[in-house]
Measured scan of single mutants.
Amino acid sequence: HNLTITQGKLFFHYNPKLCLSEIHKMEEVSGTKGRQERNDIALKTNGDQASCENELLKFSYIRTSFDKILLRWEPYWPPDFRDLLGFMLFYKEAPYQNVTEFDGQDACGSNSWTVVDIDPPLRSNDPKSQNHPGWLMRGLKPWTQYAIFVKTLVTFSDERRTYGAKSDIIYVQTDATNPSVPLDPISVSNSSSQIILKWKPPSDPNGNITHYLVFWERQAEDSELFELDYCLKGLKLPSRTWSPPFESEDSQKHNQSEYEDSAGECCSCPKTDSQILKELEESSFRKTFEDYLHNVVFVPRKTSSGTGAEDPRPSRKRRSLGDVGNVTVAVPTVAAFPNTSSTSVPTSPEEHRPFEKVVNKESLVISGLRHFTGYRIELQACNQDTPEERCSVAAYVSARTMPEAKADDIVGPVTHEIFENNVVHLMWQEPKEPNGLIVLYEVSYRRYGDEELHLCVSRKHFALERGCRLRGLSPGNYSVRIRATSLAGNGSWTEPTYFYVTDYLDVPSNIA
C-alpha cells in the first residue's frame, strides 16, 4: 500500500525493539523526510534493546553428524571492536523451508527459537588472519532439518551509529543413524509349514526405512522333555500350542467401542483428552525405555581390526524358502538304536541362519518350516543398504507352526516275539517326523474274553527296548493296539495285532 503524509511529521519514542533503520525507511515511504526535528525521533529510546544489523554474515563451514552440527561463519568486528559482546545463534526444527525470524513471537518477546549466546573469538592483530567464530550444536535429532541463523550482539553506541551483522536463515539436516526397533511384532501360524509375521514401523526411523531383515531359527525343545518319565503317576503330560491366527481386521481397528449394538453396526467412541494424553505418555515412556535398553543392555560386537582377528559373527547367506525346513542338525536320541526319531534339535552355532529381506511392506510369510516346531524370529529395521547396512537392534518374537495331521501315527506293522515265561516283546517304529517329539506310547492289549488293559511306555523305555515287553501273560489269544502321544496330543491307534500265548508248562520236552 502507498502511504503519503502531505502535512505533519513523524514522532517515535520509547520503541526499544524498533531499529532506527526501520524508522528511516518509514520517513522515505511516507514522504516526511526532512520535516522531523532532532528530538522527534529519539536516538536513545528507539532500538536500544534490539540488534540492528546492516551487514550480512556468511557461514564459512558446515559439518553434520547424526546428532551434531558444527558451524563456522566469517569474522565480524565493528569499528570499535570492544562493542562486540558476542553472537546469538538461533535454531529450531523446520520440516519445511518457510521459516521466518519472527515465527511464534508474542507480545512478551518470546519466540519459538532456541538461542545460544556465543563469546567472540580472540581478536588477531592481523586483519587478514582473524579467527572464524563458530559453535557445535549438540543433542539434535537424527535425520531432522533445522533452520539456523546467527547475528551479532553489540553494545549501545553513544554516537548512535547503527552497526551489526546478521546471516540469512539456512537449512541444515542432520545425518541418518540406526533406527529404533520395529514396533509390535506379531507372529502367527496359518499352516503346519508357515508363519505369518506382521509389525509396525519404528517410532524413530532416523532416516528413510529402506528394508527390513527377518531372521528365523528353529528352537530346540526343553531338555526336561527328553529326561522326564511322563508315565509316572502324578506327572502331567506336557503340551505345546501353536500360535493362533490373526483376529479379523475389524476387531483390530483402534479407537473402536468394545460393545456392539445388537441391531447392527455401531460407531466408534472418540477417545477423551485424558485417554489420548495417557497414550502419549505411555508411548514416550516406551521410547525412553527402549533407548535405555539399547544403550545399557546391548553391547556392540567388536569388529575385526587390522591384526587379522576374525569377526566372530557368522556370515549372512541367503537361502531359498524351500530350504528352511531342514535348518537344524538332527541327532538321534540314543545312538545305539537307529530307529528312534531325530527330534532332539541342538543347533550348531556355526550354522548360517536363513533370512529374508523385506522391502516396502511390514509383513512376511515364512514358508518351508517344520510342522509343530518353535521358531525364534528376529526382526531388524534398516535405513541404508549400501555401502553397508545400517540397521536397528533386533526385536524378537516366537511362534510355533501348526501340527501336521497323521504325523504322530505309527507307520509300519507292530511285530512281536514270544519268549519263555510268557513274555512277549512288542516292537514298532517311532514316527519319523512327529509333531514336536514323542513323549510316550500307549499300549492297549486284551486277552479274548477279558477286559482291555493299558500300559504306558516312556520315551526312554522305548529307546532301550525298541518297544516294550509284556510279562506274566496268561495263555490265550491276544490283540494289541499302540498309539503315540506327542507334544500336540495323541496320534491314531494302530491296526490290531494278534498273537497267541501258550502255557509254557505244557511245552513238550526233548528229553527222552
Results as ranks from 00 to 15, higher is better:
353 R>V: 10
341 S>Q: 15
335 A>G: 07
300 P>Q: 10
467 G>M: 04
474 S>C: 09
395 A>V: 09
245 P>L: 13
443 V>L: 08
478 Y>P: 00
384 Q>R: 06
452 E>S: 03
441 Y>H: 02
246 F>D: 08
475 P>W: 07
459 R>T: 05
329 V>M: 12
383 N>M: 12
479 S>M: 03
441 Y>S: 01
375 Y>H: 06
399 A>S: 10
432 K>V: 06
304 S>E: 08
207 G>Q: 01
232 L>T: 13
205 P>V: 02
352 H>C: 11
469 R>L: 08
427 M>Y: 01
223 S>W: 11
454 H>D: 14
444 S>R: 05
481 R>L: 10
468 C>M: 12
438 I>N: 03
443 V>Q: 00
355 F>D: 03
374 G>T: 12
283 S>G: 07
468 C>F: 06
371 H>N: 03
329 V>F: 05
449 G>L: 13
290 E>I: 15
340 T>Y: 12
404 E>M: 13
264 G>M: 10
374 G>K: 10
336 A>S: 12
229 D>V: 05
421 N>Q: 08
325 G>L: 08
296 V>R: 07
296 V>M: 10
500 Y>D: 12
371 H>W: 08
282 E>P: 12
356 E>P: 07
421 N>L: 11
228 L>I: 12
475 P>F: 05
376 R>F: 14
498 Y>I: 14
262 S>Y: 10
285 F>V: 05
281 E>C: 05
499 F>M: 06
321 L>F: 13
472 G>H: 07
362 E>H: 10
282 E>D: 15
297 V>E: 09
225 L>G: 02
304 S>Q: 13
305 S>N: 13
284 S>H: 10
278 K>W: 08
447 R>C: 06
255 N>S: 09
319 R>E: 14
219 Q>P: 06
286 R>M: 09
236 K>D: 10
325 G>M: 13
509 S>F: 11
463 A>H: 08
303 T>I: 09
465 E>P: 01
482 I>D: 00
485 T>V: 03
369 L>P: 01
238 P>I: 06
232 L>W: 04
340 T>S: 12
277 L>K: 14
460 K>L: 07
291 D>I: 08
369 L>S: 01
364 L>V: 12
275 Q>H: 11
391 C>H: 03
324 V>F: 06
255 N>F: 02
206 N>M: 06
226 F>M: 09
324 V>A: 12
482 I>H: 01
398 S>F: 03
447 R>K: 05
460 K>Y: 05
365 V>T: 04
458 S>H: 04
265 E>V: 07
406 K>D: 08
494 T>I: 03
238 P>T: 09
481 R>G: 02
414 V>I: 13
228 L>H: 02
289 F>T: 07
271 K>Y: 06
389 E>Q: 13
374 G>I: 10
394 A>L: 08
224 E>Y: 14
437 L>N: 10
408 D>F: 00
432 K>N: 07
411 V>S: 14
366 I>P: 00
370 R>M: 13
353 R>F: 03
335 A>M: 11
271 K>G: 07
203 S>Q: 05
283 S>M: 15
475 P>Y: 07
225 L>S: 09
500 Y>K: 12
242 W>R: 07
509 S>I: 15
402 M>L: 10
335 A>N: 12
309 A>R: 11
432 K>I: 07
368 G>Y: 04
315 S>E: 12
468 C>D: 01
345 V>N: 07
310 E>R: 06
266 C>Q: 11
424 V>Y: 05
351 E>S: 15
302 K>N: 10
240 R>N: 13
235 L>D: 05
486 S>A: 08
387 P>H: 06
339 N>V: 11
402 M>V: 14
409 D>I: 11
316 R>I: 10
301 R>K: 10
206 N>G: 09
447 R>S: 08
299 V>A: 10
275 Q>F: 09
303 T>E: 10
466 R>A: 05
420 E>G: 04
266 C>M: 05
478 Y>K: 00
491 G>W: 00
341 S>L: 11
379 L>A: 04
219 Q>N: 08
220 A>N: 10
432 K>H: 14
368 G>D: 06
490 N>L: 07
244 P>F: 08
310 E>P: 08
277 L>Q: 09
471 R>G: 09
489 G>T: 06
315 S>I: 12
447 R>L: 11
312 P>H: 12
290 E>T: 08
277 L>P: 04
266 C>W: 13
248 S>A: 10
415 T>Y: 13
428 W>Y: 02
270 P>F: 12
467 G>Y: 04
257 S>M: 05
393 V>E: 15
433 E>Y: 09
403 P>L: 09
319 R>S: 11
273 D>Q: 13
361 K>S: 10
236 K>R: 07
215 F>S: 10
384 Q>F: 10
410 I>H: 05
367 S>I: 09
292 Y>I: 05
398 S>R: 12
251 S>N: 09
211 H>A: 07
233 K>V: 15
323 D>Q: 15
265 E>N: 11
391 C>T: 02
280 L>F: 13
245 P>T: 13
471 R>C: 11
433 E>V: 14
463 A>V: 10
